[in-house]
Design a binder for these strands. Structure first.
Lengths: 338, 338
DNA sequence: ATGAAAGCGCTAACAG
DNA sequence: CTGTTAGCGCTTTCAT
């Protein structure tokens, strides 16, 4: 509160009426005379009155703030999701407090603590890459704080979740590569404790099975997201006697890095190796060859999750709700052979 | 507040002491007996006591929250800056509330209003592309809310600012192109009411002058950031009789889009046209040719701005402070001719 | 239609 | 070292 912010008390005093009446007038309460209401609002405007949110929050035990925990803002997927969250939240009169776990469990736990102690009215969460337990979230649930997961969900918790069909899209992507004539498709997998990673891997495996293509263990590598790792597993895959003729990468940037390495090796894409990325970044259209990828409606997921959360907050009804947001395969030159 | 959160009152009652003593014990106040302090903390732990931040905030008139207004989180520069902000803020016990202006003045004004009414302790701002006035910020300043601008600053306001040397780096980048033999360097300019855009343009102009290269108006285009616009001005530049032999793009993505178009036209980069981007995205290393660019230490700018803000908050001393964060030219294949 | 009064949970000045 | 008291600014019940 700076020097001389005016309060309802000031307004009441100068108008010679009570605080309660002023409060009622300002909140458009029904039983307050038109005349008084007018005078109050007029003076409020003149005095540049701004309600003290802190006082109201304490009284109402409600902050009109949503807490968001995401892995990283520099991850474009989450940056876009945040856009959707903020749009819905703001237009419903809610503020948003964003925390980043930096892909670590520890920070995720801290963030949750922070947001809970800030008394947010609800939580929107996409778990970190490390998260292999759910007790911290169970704690929040026990405290009756509405919680909605999106994208990186924790299936074992009975809360609402907005997710994308990682199994389906991965099946579809793999089958696309097969249709382009690939027989040995390298697959870059994410951490196996993540629901999404498991589904993606399963989609790949099922697609191979459905098309009678043998699963070759050495074609499946595990990304560890460390610097230089893309280069490392690309070498591993392509220094083998039998090289891959297709790649299902873990994201677009790493797909481009792999392509870059392969082109240096003199391999032609897609003729020698067909490549499929993940995330459909803008850049996919501006590289040579243009990069096939998978588009996730990040913004829409943010929107959907927030809508569910707001509904739960206002209805105080926390029954589990699951919403599927469909992903889409975008075929470009890097995987088109015919 | 959920069902049955315990308060200092509960602790006081079960321990048969007063609320004030409990409060003091919990806040590690000096004059409270070791014994009492121990008992209080023990019970607090057992009862899973969580202080009600809302009450404390109302009492202290302080939220321990910083408000941040940035154009967009999907802009990687700002996403990184936010990382720096959060790191410093969190480790100082502050929360961060992030708002996006979506590059519009109207939303920026709304955001400011929201953050002020949320009683944030201070503000970190990078203005929108549209912002050509400063009265809304002046309003906040008049209310004694500490404010620090970073990157996209408003020079006319006497508040602290963290900025990068857009003039210098632009001069340097242009001179680099000249040294590579470019005589007709196309320049993509940003909105002229932005301090950064003006400086960048001036750096370009001065570098030409310093090297006795005539300024050609038709080589300077104004980006409007609309879909298809990059394609439009690239055509404009290269359908002319005298084509550019160098490009200083407005960011890396648009540089890549331009390169993509030029390659389709059969032009060789850097031989026919040398290209310099802006932002030094990861992708610069994975395209062909690799893209020369300019690196802005976004994270560091966030860190610096937050440090200044926190100092001002704690010292209540708002004298203007200016901090320059140096950018760096990263030369890669797209602009290297020798 | 309005006012008086209580209270949200905490901190801090003052008194002892 | 501890307790009493007041108060942050607002909403809301209960009277009138």
């Amino acid at each position: 509160m700076s020097k001389s912010d005016s309060t309802i008390r000031d307004i009441a005093r100068t108008l010679g009426i009570s605080k309660s009446t002023v409060s009622r007038a300002l909140n458009n309460h029904y039983d307050v005379s038109q005349e008084t209401a007018r005078k109050v609002k007029e003076l409020a405007l003149k005095m540049d009155y701004q309600p003290n949110i802190l006082a109201r929050q304490l009284k109402l035990q409600r902050t009109n703030t949503l807490g968001v925990i995401i892995p990283e803002t520099i991850n474009r997927f989450f940056a876009k999701a945040v856009g959707g969250i903020q749009e819905v939240a703001n237009s419903a009169g809610y503020n948003v407090m964003i925390c980043q776990s930096n892909e670590t469990l520890t920070l995720e736990q801290n963030n949750l603590q922070t947001l809970m102690s800030s008394k947010v009215d609800g939580l929107l969460v996409s778990v970190s890459r490390q998260t292999d337990r759910s007790d911290h979230f169970q704690y929040a649930i026990n405290k009756d704080i509405p919680l909605v997961f999106f994208d990186r969900i924790l299936e074992e918790l009975a809360v609402s979740q907005v997710y994308s069909d990682n199994f389906d899209i991965s099946f579809q992507g793999t089958e696309h590569l097969i249709q382009q004539g690939c027989k040995r498709i390298a697959f870059v997998a994410g951490p196996s404790h993540l629901f999404n990673s498991r589904n993606r891997l399963n989609g790949y495996l099922e697609a191979l099975k459905a098309n009678n293509i043998p699963v070759v263990e050495s074609l499946i590598v595990q990304a560890n997201y460390q610097a230089g790792h893309v280069q490392q597993y690309t070498r591993y895959l392509f220094d083998a006697k039998e090289k891959p003729d297709g790649i299902f990468a873990i994201n677009d940037i790493s797909a481009l890095e792999m392509m870059h390495i392969l082109k240096m090796k003199g391999l032609h894409i897609p003729r020698d190796v067909a490549v499929l990325g993940f995330n459909n970044e803008v850049i996919c259209d501006f590289v040579e060859p243009t990069l096939s990828s998978i588009e996730h409606p990040a913004f829409d997921m943010g929107v959907a999750a927030t809508r569910i959360l707001l509904k739960q907050i206002s209805s105080k009804e926390f029954t589990q709700q699951k919403e599927l947001i469909k992903s889409r395969l975008v075929v470009r030159e890097s995987s088109r052979r015919y």
